[in-house]
């Protein structure tokens, strides 16, 4: 359904991604793991053209963009509209209420009927457990609550693909669970998701496939039981050891 072929991205003379291939089938959850600075965020941002790849084809069956050629702005916007993104730092609109944050995309971009969108937005808030917070402003919410609003805002545009960039790594430990729970529900509902995360246990539970990247290349990929419990590559082993035994 969604695929990436020969993706390359360079910042100055720092080649961050060196020819990445990946495929995300409908309803599947892909977890991306890797050390800090390995290019996970850049990869995710290339998937919805927040970052423009130097080379490679990115897109859905019915809408592919070839970045080796000059790409029109409109094509990027079309690609972006098919995926929703959840940021590490939430990036909610501070001048709009929770409900307005969620309605912004469907009403302003998709030009859908305000009344229907409002009902859907309230349903989404119910899904993430924040129905009673609909009229508050982002600064009045905890980090975990803000991130759940961030998820609802991304879902509201009815994307085909949901992208998550370390959605819990800015959160206090006691708030991580509430966000992961929402994400697990989404996975159970059949959403197609690509999740960059350091939560190994969580990845093990919800991912259909795990991709381990380091130095801008996919070092290892496969089902969680293989990659996470039984990694073949030494780099994967070392990374997992470090993350599971932080004090060693």
């Amino acid at each position: 359904m969604f695929a990436v072929k020969g993706l390359k991205k360079t910042f100055g003379n720092n080649t961050v991604l060196k020819s990445i291939d990946m495929q995300v089938d409908k309803g599947k959850v892909i977890a991306i793991l890797g050390p800090s600075g390995s290019g996970k965020t850049t990869l995710l941002r290339c998937l919805n053209a927040l970052e423009i790849p130097d080379e490679g084809i990115v897109g859905f069956d019915d809408h592919k963009v070839d970045f080796s050629q000059k790409v029109k702005q409109q094509e990027l916007i079309q690609l972006r509209r098919k995926s929703g993104m959840v940021f590490q730092s939430y990036n909610l609109f501070p001048h709009r209420t929770v409900l307005e944050n969620i309605m912004e995309g469907p009403v302003q971009v998709q030009k859908r009927d305000k009344k229907i969108v409002r009902e859907e937005a309230i349903e989404l808030l119910d899904k993430v457990g924040l129905k009673d917070k609909k009229d508050l402003y982002p600064y009045q919410l905890s980090g975990g609550q803000q991130q759940r609003v961030g998820i609802a805002r991304a879902l509201a545009i009815k994307p085909e693909l949901m992208l998550f960039d370390e959605p819990t790594s800015a959160l206090d430990p006691e708030l991580i669970g509430e966000v992961l729970r929402v994400m697990r529900d989404l996975a159970d509902e059949g959403w197609t998701m690509v999740v960059v995360t350091h939560e190994i246990k969580f990845a093990q539970e919800i991912a259909d496939e795990v991709i381990f990247i380091d130095g801008g290349v996919i070092v290892e990929q496969g089902v969680p039981t293989e990659v996470l419990s039984n990694p073949k590559e030494e780099r994967t082993q070392r990374f997992l050891h470090r993350i599971l035994n932080p004090t060693d």
Partner: peptide, 24 residues
């Protein structure tokens, strides 16, 4: 991140500028 949040819900540069950035 505010620009990017606008882009990811499908907004164009103009729309993001007028709906997200300028009010702030």
């Amino acid at each position: 991140g505010q620009w990017e949040a606008g882009y990811t819900i499908g907004m164009s540069y103009r729309k993001t500028l007028f709906r997200v950035i300028l009010p702030q």
